[in-house]
Each structure stands twice: as C-alpha cells, then as structure tokens.
Design a binder for these strands. Structure first.
Length: 634
DNA sequence: ATAGGGTTAG
C-alpha cells in the first residue's frame, strides 16, 4: 500500500522491520522504487537481494522488468539485463521472460539487443512481434518495422485490437505516419470495431502529425467520447497553434458533461508557455483552481514553465516553492527559467539546493545551468559546472553541452578558448556549435574567425537560411557589400527566404502578431503615427538609427525606414497605444533582438516610463529606466 | 503477459 501510494520511506520502514522477507516482499519494495522512478535505490536493493542469496522467481523478474519497460528507463535496463543473465541459463531463458526482455530493450532504445533476443525465440508469438515492431518505430527504423509487421502476418500471427493500438500509438511522427495510415487501413479492412482506445490512438497519431482534419473526421464520427478523446483533440489543436479551436472544444466538452482533468489542462498551459500568452495562461490557471482540477506534478511543472516563459519569474518561483512534490523535470524548468531571465546566480543556487537534497541532475539540468551561466557571463562558474557534470555525475557531455560551452566562452569574448573547444571536442561540431562561434565573432568583431565559421556552416548545411543571414550580416557590418550580395543571391537561387521576424503582444487577452514592414492592420494609421512620435522622442534623447544591422545594400534613408518598421517596434507602438500608462508591455518574438531595437527599447522604457519585457528566441530582456536586465550582454 | 491523452533542452 505504501509503495503504491509513493510513501516509499514508510514502505521501507515496514520492510526493514520484517523478521522474515520472502521474494514477494523484496519484489514489492523494488517495484515501488521503480514505479516512483527511484532507480538507484531499486538497483541497490536488487544487488542486496543477490548478496543475501534470495533468488527471485521468474515471475518476480518479469514484473520488475515490465515496470522498467513501461518507464523506458535506459540506466537500469543494462544492469537488470546483466542480472537476469547471471541468474538464469542463457540457453534456457523462458519464452515469457525473453519476451519481456525484448519489450524492455525495444522500449528503451536498445533495439539491436531486443532483436538478437527476438531471433533466438523459437515460438514467436504476437507479444514478441508487437514489442519488436513497436521498438523499431520508436527508434525511427520504420522500414524495419514495416518489414517485420509483414513477416508477422506471413507467419500467420495476426494482430488484435490491443496490439494494433499499441503500434498506432507509436506512429505519431512524420517518419511513421505512412505506416500509421497503413495500420488505419488494416483496422478498417479487417472490420475492427472502432472502440475508444482504437479511435483515440488514431486521433492522437493524426494530431501529432499535424493532420488535424483527419483527426477531426474521426472525432466527428464517434458516437461515444470520453475524457481521453477530448484531451487528444485539444492537444492536437494547441500543437497546431489553433488555440481558439482548443478553447471552443474545452467549452463543448463541458457541455457534454465531461469534466477536463489535469492532462487536458497541461496542453493548454504549455501552449501559453510556447506563445508567451500570459493573460490567457493566468485565465487557465484560474480555471484549473476554480474547477478544482487536481494539480499533479506534471501540471505544476507546466504552470511553472508557463509563468517563467511568459516573463513572470516571481510567480513561477512561488509555485515551485509551494509544490509539495518535485521531480527532476520541475527542477530543470525552474533552472532553465532563471537562466532565461539572466539570473545565473539563482540558477546555480537552485542547483546547490538540488545537490544538498541529493537529487540527481540529468543532462538537461546541465544544459540549463550552462546556458544560465552563459547569459549571465559567469564564465568561471560555467567551467566548473561543466567539470562537475563529467567528474561528479559521470555524465558524458553531448554535442549540445559543447555548444553551450562555445556559447559561454564566445559571448564572454574568449573567442580563442571557444575555438579550442570546437577543435578538441570529441565529436564533429555541428551547425549549432559553429553558429554559436559565428554569433560570438559577430558580437566581438572577429571577421577572420567569423569567416572560417561561416565557411564551415555553409559546408555542413548550405540550405540553412538562418546561417546565411548571419553570414551576410557579418559581411554587412563590415560593409562588404559584394559578399553580402553573393550570399543573398545564392540564397535566392536556392529559393531560401529569411525567416520573417514576428513579434507578438497580448492586449486584453488577445494575441496580436506583427511582422516586419507596413501591414494591413485596422489600427495601422495610428501605429504609424505612434512610430513617428517614438522616433522623434528617441532622436531627441540622442538615438541614432544603427543601420549596420540592416542587411540590404540600400540607401541610408531606406535603411532607416526598414529599421523603423522592425516588427518589435511596431508591436511596441501598438502596446503603447492600447495599454494603460505605466502598465508593463510584454512582447514575444521569434528571432533574437537586434542591436538597434535593443538600444531603442532601452530609451523608450525611460521616455514612456514603461517596463518593457521582451522574450526573444533564447532569453528575456527586462527594459526599464533606460537599461536592460541583460546588461547589454546577449 | 499485450492497449489510448500531459511537462523540461535541442
């Protein structure tokens, strides 16, 4: 009972007091740890059990392995596998045990090990086949999966409703969609009844592959719908940025007297996080509490993430402190949140707390910490964290972590140290790594290293338009128009377009989106007047347009004009017009803030006495009283 | 023995 409810220390106490322990008591305790993701302790107990010569029965092993397969944990599969091998005769592994091992390996990414076990099976039943096919789809070896599915049918082993559902559930990726459609066809051809699980898995698959209309067709045809059906469709809409449709469904669902639960709400909250819609996020938060929807650990994490990503780090931290239950994901969200806001010290403090509580950080934790150090210019601390990751926690830095290090050193102006990392890292640097170096070269004006990085980028990924823009940007800063033109031409020939700059601003709960340039907005006349006024006041305050950030080789006057119509400035003008004096203005943009807008926004915060909070692609800028929280360091 | 929905980075 204690294990099931997650009161593991109480369970352990009872366990320790037992005079006699049999296989069942060990099994229960270990399953408790696995179920609640305390893998270290589970492994320790398995070893202790072995030491005490308690020999687990096959069914004990199966039940533990099954749990492991469900949580898809990679760290434990290896030692568990070793343990099973050690305790049984490899040549006489029972079919049931083997099948469970296949499932465990297939679900946790070791598809090759799963296959070798699969090939040793004499009698391959539907469970083994399904586990294997599902494993292939999960690790993106879809062709192999299709082949095996065909072989299974040839062998005369036919899938049933349950196995079809578990396969379809794996098909929510672009790569697997074709297979998913084939399975859908199989379901129809063979006259399976569209039960709720079957329909839900199909709905979810189409939703995840952005084929919402197919999902909708299935949904509309259904006679009965339960909480999962609604939830899946709502997630599909939020994923496709159709928030109005999602909210409509929330209302409709209430009307058909099905009450949303915490799972339903998570996808709505995470939409707000993604799009920076704070007002909507607050509304949903209030809705959750008003409807007395239970806030479990995942929903709390989503809310924390939402507040952090919408600029309200104080509320995010309050929710974090109030949470009675925290997992690694929640800690990571909070660390990432602090980093995003430039509070590097706070992120590090949180990490210290984690360490004191003996909570094991994972690789995402370190991405958060390294990028937090990077945004705050904490070079020494960042280096220490990187060492700790390797030495204390035995985590092998992945390419992302090297990318963070290059960013950390590059941003701080230590270009050659950054380049050292690029040259000595144990894997081939990718576009992210070269891109970080290139961006650093742009900020710290090292055209030679910048050019080298540019060439590498073009070599690895000639199609990436973002990097081409950055390259032409570097040339433009040096007024090397010839090079700018040739990069631009090459882009045009390949049909590449610069990702358009988009700025969003939420006013009275509605999100308004602006792109660059003059646009067909009902209020555009007013906005244009406002922009003119802003420019006048800016110039009076000593602002000069920084035309070096404009990429095009055009006349100076035109360049100024193109600056004036940067989406960010338009959104700001719109905010100034439509919000009450002295309320903060919040803007979310898809690209990084440009130098000119950054300077202008600082001044504007002083001129109009407004706090202006801008979330760019990677971090927050809090502008107030003429300065920015990033300390001009981004 | 086998089934459907949600959170962090890139």
């Amino acid at each position: 009972m204690y294990c099931e409810c997650g009161f593991l220390s109480s369970a352990r106490l009872v366990f320790e007091k037992l005079m006699k322990r049999d296989v069942v008591s060990w099994n229960t305790m270990i399953r408790g740890y696995v179920k609640h993701r305390v893998f270290d302790e589970a492994l320790r107990m398995i070893r202790e059990m072995q030491y005490k010569l308690v020999k687990p029965s096959e069914s004990t092993m199966i039940s533990i392995l099954k749990l492991l397969a469900d949580v898809g944990n990679k760290e434990l599969t290896k030692p568990m596998f070793a343990y099973v091998i050690k305790n049984s005769n490899m040549n006489h592994l029972g079919a049931n045990l083997t099948t469970t091992l296949i499932e465990m390996h297939a679900k946790s990414g070791s598809v090759a090990v799963a296959r070798s076990l699969f090939d040793r099976l004499n009698e391959k039943n539907v469970y083994a086949y399904t586990a294997m096919v599902a494993g292939y789809i999960r690790c993106n070896a879809v062709e192999e999966g299709v082949r095996l599915f065909g072989q299974m049918i040839e062998d005369g082993i036919l899938p049933n409703e349950v196995t079809l559902v578990s396969l379809i559930a794996e098909c929510g990726t672009d790569e697997a969609l074709d297979l998913g459609k084939q399975l859908h066809g199989y379901v129809i051809r063979n006259g399976f009844v569209m039960t709720l699980p079957l329909a839900t898995s199909l709905l979810d698959m189409y939703g995840k592959c952005c084929e919402i209309s197919s999902a909708r067709t299935i949904f509309d045809k259904m006679e009965r719908r339960d909480i999962m059906t609604w939830t899946v469709l709502i997630s599909a809409y939020t994923r496709g940025n159709c928030i109005e449709k999602a909210i409509d469904l929330l209302v409709l669902m209430r009307e058909s007297s099905i009450k949303p639960n915490q799972v339903t709400m998570v996808s709505l909250v995470s939409f707000c996080a993604e799009s920076g819609a704070l007002d909507l996020g607050k509304w949903i938060h209030a809705y959750i509490d008003k409807q007395r929807i239970n806030r479990d650990i995942v929903l709390n994490t989503a809310l924390i993430d939402m507040y952090a990503k919408c600029g309200d780090i104080t509320t995010a931290y309050r929710l974090f402190e109030e949470a009675t239950n925290r997992d690694i994901c929640m800690w990571n969200c909070m660390i990432l949140g602090f980093g995003m806001h430039g509070f590097g010290e706070k992120a590090l403090e949180l990490f210290t707390k984690m360490e004191n509580l003996q909570i094991k950080p994972n690789e995402i934790t370190f991405i958060g910490l390294l990028s937090a150090c990077s945004h705050a210019g904490l070079v020494k601390e960042g280096k220490r964290v990187f060492e700790k990751m390797k030495n204390k926690y035995g985590l092998l830095p992945k390419i992302e972590h090297y990318g963070c290090m290059v960013d950390l050193l590059g941003r701080a102006g230590l270009l050659h140290e950054a380049y050292d990392i690029v040259q000595t890292m144990p894997m081939k640097p990718n576009v992210v790594v070269w891109g970080a170096l290139l961006a650093a070269c742009k900020v710290h004006k090292d055209p030679d290293l910048g050019e080298l990085a540019s060439l590498k980028l073009l070599e690895i990924d000639p199609e990436s338009c973002g990097h081409n823009v950055l390259i032409s940007n570097i040339y433009a800063t040096e007024k090397r128009w010839k090079n700018v033109v040739s990069v631009r031409k090459a882009m045009k020939n390949r049909g590449m377009k610069k990702e358009p700059g988009i700025s969003c601003i939420e006013v009275n709960g509605a999100v308004h989106e602006f792109t660059t340039g003059i646009q067909a907005h009902a209020q555009f006349g007013e906005i244009d007047d406002m922009l003119r006024e802003m420019l006048c006041k800016l110039e009076a305050a000593g602002y000069k347009p920084d035309t070096s950030v404009v990429l095009l080789n055009i006349e100076e006057k035109e360049r100024e004009k193109s600056l004036k119509y940067h989406s960010e400035k338009i959104a700001m003008a719109f905010g100034l017009i439509n919000t009450a004096p002295s309320t903060p203005i919040r803007i979310v943009k898809n690209l990084r803030v440009c130098d000119d807008c950054h300077t202008a926004t600082k001044l504007l915060s002083k001129i109009y006495k407004r706090t202006i909070i801008v979330r760019d692609r990677i971090r927050f800028h809090h502008f107030s009283e003429g300065s920015c929280s990033c300390g001009d360091y981004w």
